[in-house]
């Protein structure tokens, strides 16, 4: 690019062209959806099977994996933002959205006793908010569909006991995190991001 004088029309064209270039490109956030999808899938199925069919005393033990998930997410998130050549507002919002939802979800889980361990309907509702807003920000249909599934499962979860709620949780992350996560990953590969 030369450093030449511009006509007013050339100026406007240049502004438009550069703003277009800076506009959001496809972001691959599949790592987080797959990580959390598998952690929650494992923890909820483990919880259901041990609580329903065994006399194992600590069916909720699998949920301790969420602590590891939180640490891994923080490490990956900060590495991603350090390496990024450009920081845009969408990525910033995205990070804050999920961090805030994470805090809300952990608060519900750690205070579960006070609501008779009926935590899953609330977790499903919050997961639906995250996937819906992420889907809108990334203009990504599978996440929007996932959010509707989360909300429908939340409606059902209010009507069943805490052990059965675990099966709804597992279905929720299958459709809301894992399916969109794998589609996102394969799209990212196709677009060579």
């Amino acid at each position: 690019m030369e450093d030449k004088e511009l006509s007013p029309q050339e100026s406007l064209d240049l502004i438009q062209q550069m703003i277009g270039k800076a506009r959001k490109r496809y972001t691959d956030n599949s790592y987080f959806f797959l990580l959390w999808g598998w952690i929650v899938m494992f923890a909820s199925l483990f919880h259901y099977i041990t609580a329903a069919y065994t006399s194992f005393e600590y069916p909720y033990a699998g949920w301790s994996l969420t602590i590891i998930g939180a640490v891994l997410s923080m490490i990956k998130g900060s590495k991603k933002s350090r390496q990024a050549q450009v920081r845009n507002y969408t990525d910033k919002l995205y990070g804050w959205l999920w961090a805030s939802l994470g805090i809300a979800m952990f608060t519900i889980i750690f205070n579960g006793e006070s609501i008779g361990w009926n935590t899953i309907p609330f977790i499903l509702l919050l997961a639906g908010v995250g996937t819906s807003v992420s889907g809108a920000m990334m203009n990504f249909q599978p996440l929007r569909i996932g959010s509707i599934i989360f909300w429908l499962l939340a409606l059902a979860a209010f009507r069943v006991d805490p052990t059965k709620q675990m099966l709804l949780m597992a279905s929720g992350v299958a459709f809301g995190y894992l399916v969109p996560g794998y589609i996102m990953k394969s799209n990212a590969k196709k677009n060579a991001v």
Binding site: I15, Q17, I19, A22, R23, A84, Q85, V86, R87, Y89
Partner: peptide
């Protein structure tokens, strides 16, 4: 024009 659309850039 690039910088007005992003938070920061390398």
């Amino acid at each position: 024009s690039l910088l007005i659309s992003v938070e920061s850039a390398d």
